[in-house]
Amino acid sequence: MTAANEAGLRIGTAPDSWGVWFPDDPGQVPWERFLDEVVASGYEWIELGPYGYLPTDPHQLEDELGKRGLKLSAGTVFTGFHKGDDEWQRAWDQALNVAGLASKLGAEHLVVIPDLWRSDATSQVLEPRTLTDEQWAKLGAGHDRLGKALLEEFGVKQQFHSHADSHIGTTREVLRFLDETDERYTNLCLDTGHFAYYGGDNVKLIEERPERIGYLHLKQVDPSLLFDVLKNDVPFAEAVTQGIMIEPPNGVPDLAPVIEAVAKIDADIFAIVEQDMYGCDVDRPLPIATRTREHIFSCTHLARS
């Protein structure tokens, strides 16, 4: 392990850890309070969250982050390339906004989340749960096209985020996604909670596919609740309100082995705390965010601000 690796991964947080899923929701914490509480809880790196939640004017956002000593690690977009060629324009329109803004503030990553087969807003089933071979091919080709364009246009790397209630969630699906895509253009934002949601072994995936790990989201699943959720086919959004993503160290996976395995690959990989808490009371996130950061820094020496 090199001296750079020994410094550990950069730990940050995201609007999701404050219950933010949408650009504008009166039940969510106001963006100014979110930024202030990020500082209060001890983090320096954040993600953009849903486009439009934080200021979209780059000068205003730079000022707001700068006066708080905060820095931006990534933005987020949503894609559905398996649905057909028409999805390209939708994805690129988002990328122009999100990657355009994030790159101006120095971010080098774009977290890409696949459309869900079951709506996270209404829990309505929108399409079949599994993809055909033709849809898999469209999915892979679309992401490689997007990743190549992001690199060429913005110098930003695509980091794909497997997700509960999406077509890419299980270990088998994640591995097929990697096999369908080109590591030059498409790699993983490995979300430890979403991968564990369907029984995935995070450390095993990291060790078997180290070249495909480009970014981390740190969260834990409540194993005592998970089997009820899966048995009863509870929609992910409902599971979140039930507390399926739980405050560390009360869930799985253990975060220290994940951080240490990824630190062996590249110390410049971000590890962003992202505890799904949509629908929570606005006073709840700050103490959880503070305790989570303290836990991470106490459980491994391979973490840095």
Rank of each mutant, 00 (worst) to 15 (best):
I213Q: 04
L110H: 05
R209F: 08
T132H: 00
D165M: 03
I269L: 04
K264V: 01
T192K: 04
G42Q: 08
L110S: 05
G193L: 00
S73C: 10
R176S: 01
K264T: 08
L286H: 02
G19R: 14
T13L: 02
A237S: 10
A149G: 03
P15Y: 00
V273P: 01
N97A: 13
T171A: 09
P15F: 00
Y43C: 00
L205R: 05
E211F: 04
R176Y: 03
I213F: 02
Y185F: 14
A164H: 07
R212I: 08
P285E: 02
G214R: 07
E260F: 04
Y185Q: 05
T181Q: 04
N5L: 05
L188R: 00
T2Y: 04
G169R: 05
W18I: 08
I288E: 10
G200Q: 00
D228A: 06
E294A: 14
E152V: 09
P55M: 11
Q158H: 11
T132S: 14
T76I: 15
E108M: 11
H109Q: 12
S103A: 15
V282F: 12
T300H: 04
V98N: 01
R291C: 00
S123P: 15
D266N: 12
H194A: 06
A137K: 11
T241P: 01
I11W: 07
V203T: 05
I206F: 03
